[in-house]
């Protein structure tokens, strides 16, 4: 997945560098063919689906659109989606900072294995991410009988949805911070500590300003996935309307009931979230590359 650390130095010169140089400049017809092919693919596979969401959402008119959004089951799904994100993003933020601090600032055996294991949830199917919590907390699961005795519901209830969301968004922030903090080394922090700063002061005043943009970037991506997760949440939710339906699950139910306009209306909120995510992401990339180029100009 795209990592912010990789985009720091680039994107400044842009394509001009290549087009000005006769050795790297392509013939005009090549440019047209490449752009024609690429942009056609882009329009058919990426742009049309995005437009279709909004076109379908407003097909039955503005009134139907807003009616679908203020309907009680829709509102309850919005609340649950916000709740799941509000719990899982901070948890994975704390984890991401802790993991990056341990991996980037210290040497210890098994470090490569640890960073591989952190990425593990990315390569696990979302369906399996839901299944594993059913195997542990479900009625037939490891803790199933005990939970039943104590009248605690995790699967087919909100805690299961939160757990599944935490799992699928687990690596997002850690994997933005680790490469960046490794590249930055530990000289600045060591200087701060040897000048008498406490560990907390060092992190707050030295490390945090250095990783600010990567941190925000990770949080944005983590949040988008947390609010949009479908497969994992679908397994553990139980699909109880008004209780355990998140927005993506509500979209599915409406769609399967042939309420297409309503399904696309709720979907359009999620599509808006995606657009805001991409806009913020682009802004953060721009800020990050600017702060790096400023640093470079200070050094020279």
């Amino acid at each position: 997945m795209a990592s912010l650390a990789g985009t720091f130095d680039t994107r400044l010169d842009g394509a001009r560098k290549f087009e000005a140089n006769p050795a790297t400049r392509d013939a005009l017809w090549v440019k047209f063919v490449v752009l024609g092919l690429g942009l056609t693919f882009f329009v058919v596979f990426l742009l049309l689906p995005l437009i279709a969401v909004f076109a379908e959402a407003f097909r039955k008119g503005v009134d139907t659109y807003f009616a679908a959004l203020v309907e009680p089951d829709a509102l309850s799904s919005i609340r649950l989606t916000l709740l799941a994100a509000a719990i899982s993003v901070p948890l994975n933020l704390i984890f991401g900072v802790a993991a990056a601090w341990a991996v980037a600032k210290f040497q210890f055996p098994g470090k490569n294995l640890l960073t591989t294991l952190i990425d593990l949830p990315f390569s696990v199917s979302p369906v399996i991410a839901g299944l594993i919590y059913v195997l542990i907390f479900g009625l037939q699961g490891w803790f199933g009988p005990w939970l039943r005795e104590h009248d605690i519901k995790i699967i087919f209830a909100v805690p299961g949805i939160v757990l599944a969301t935490v799992f699928v968004t687990f690596p997002f922030i850690a994997r933005e911070l680790i490469p960046l903090m490794q590249a930055q080394g530990r000289d600045e922090e060591e200087a701060a500590v040897s000048l008498g700063a406490s560990g907390f002061q060092t992190f707050w005043r030295v490390t945090l300003p250095n990783i600010k943009w990567a941190l925000i970037y990770g949080v944005i991506l983590c949040n988008a996935r947390a609010m949009g997760e479908f497969g994992a949440v679908s397994v553990v939710s139980g699909h109880i309307r008004g209780e355990t339906n998140t927005m993506p699950l509500h979209v599915e139910i409406l769609y399967n009931e042939y309420q297409f306009a309503a399904a696309f209306a709720v979907a359009s909120l999620l599509a808006l979230l995606a657009l805001v995510t991409l806009a913020l992401k682009t802004y953060v990339e721009w800020q990050a590359s600017r702060s790096v180029s400023e640093e470079h100009s200070h050094e020279h």
């Binding site: 882009f42 689906p49 995005l50 988008a224 949009g228 479908f230 993506p248 999620l270």
Partner: peptide, 23 residues
């Protein structure tokens, strides 16, 4: 175009699914 390339990362999969079906 560059920013929208990441749309499949940001767009929830269920939304992508029903949009592609409609198209």
């Amino acid at each position: 175009v560059d920013a929208l390339i990441d749309l499949p990362f940001a767009l929830p999969t269920a939304v992508a699914g029903i949009a592609l079906t409609a198209i």
